[in-house]
Amino acid sequence: MPVIKINNLSKSYGEIHAVRNVSLEVAKGSIFGFLGPNGAGKTTTINILCTLLKPTSGTASIAGYDCNTESSGVRNHIGIVFQDTTLDKDLTAYENLLFHAYLYSVKRKDRKKKIEDSLEFVGLYERRHDLVKKFSGGMKRRLEVARGLIHDPEVLFLDEPTLGLDPQSRSNLWEFITKLPEKQGVTVFMTTHYMEEAEVCDQIAIIDRGSIIAQGTPNELKKSIGGDIIYIKTSDNEKAASDIEKLLNLKPTIKNGEIYVTVERGDTCLPELIRTLGESVLSVRLQRPTLNDVFLQLTGKQIRDVEISAGATLKENVRSHRRKFGRD
């Protein structure tokens, strides 16, 4: 049962086509990754889904509510962590969540417990009475995740939740995010341009210049560009190659004293190969394609190398400027 349905969605700003004919379905209880370089249209899509922006054409619905016409229904069923921080830095962590609980009319008797539980969940319970301006970037991010969960949303949107965090805080935050569907029963819709982070997603869509260019599970996407490559060195490569051909019905190649063969699932194929070739095996190597390879093949460019548009650079500057002055 899809909880998010997007049908032929487009959004243009005059000449700029930020989103073009996007169609997607997101299954309930899954983690959905929306990947793409700067300016691809990720945030624009999220803003349409969370009713902050009207689409130029097309439709979208969340939990059965139309994003264009039933905004109140949609808003009641979603939680959002925006790309830029949206906390009140002059309030404490607890007060920020209390503010949210009132805005979403969380029942009086549940309020305190819900807030404390979600603070506990993201590991900020001890710091609940500290002003948010004293929090690190990672703590603010976690607090925003906690806030997004207080009203038990069906879908939690995370727009680049790990942007600007150090590797440790990133993996920290990922731990929380991957636990979400199981623990909170929420569907996660997230964007990122760290391809390696997207590995944990159940489904992925890759967007580039407003259009979806690929969609599937991480494994499907990796398979779509050719699957795993096994490299084997043996004492007799010619003989081994013909053995492999017989076994797998695939023609291996010999190059630089190594045999290599592309298979669908390297992890299950490898033990079989070694058993067949027996003692003659000198070394083996398994290379699995990454989502970066997928992106590279689909767009001809590395996601992180994509030329950053002037607008995006400006945005980054503003952000780092704000960070410098401790206002973000």
Binding site: I80, F82, R147
Partner: peptide
């Protein structure tokens, strides 16, 4: 400017 308005605007209010 500092974002909180977005939090208010997406609330069911």
């Amino acid at each position: 400017e500092f974002g909180l308005m977005k939090e208010i605007l997406v609330a069911p209010v």
